[in-house]
């Protein structure tokens, strides 16, 4: 029998208005304990205002072996970066 607690991925919202960001992982028997543990492990220094936890087993990942076909084609398409436009001053921060 497997005795190890399942692994959880932890996402923290740093402040209101920002996205939750992946900060790491931890072990816990269920979601409630995972949130408590995340609070203690990852927010000791005022890092966050909200915590999400997701069972690591529920995350589907891209194939590292397919890196070239997935990401290589975008390398030479600099025109996809919106850095060629002049943004008027009064638009403010984008």
């Amino acid at each position: 029998m497997k005795k190890e607690w399942p692994l959880w991925e932890v996402f923290i919202r740093g402040q209101h208005g920002l996205n939750h960001r992946h900060v790491g992982s931890l072990h816990a028997p269920d979601a409630e304990m995972a949130i408590k543990n995340a609070r203690d492990v990852y927010t000791r220094r005022k890092e966050g205002v909200s915590i999400w936890v997701v069972p690591s087993a529920q995350i589907s990942a891209s194939d590292p072996g397919a890196k070239d076909s997935l990401f290589e084609p975008s390398m030479d398409k600099i025109y996809r970066h919106p850095s060629f436009y002049d943004i008027p001053e009064d638009v403010g921060k984008m």
């Binding site: 607690w5 931890l26 072990h27 816990a28 543990n37 203690d40 492990v41 000791r44």
Partner: peptide, 11 residues
């Protein structure tokens, strides 16, 4: 008993 509890108790 586990790392997570160690940190929680220290807190």
């Amino acid at each position: 008993p586990v790392l997570e509890e160690d940190i929680a108790l220290a807190n």
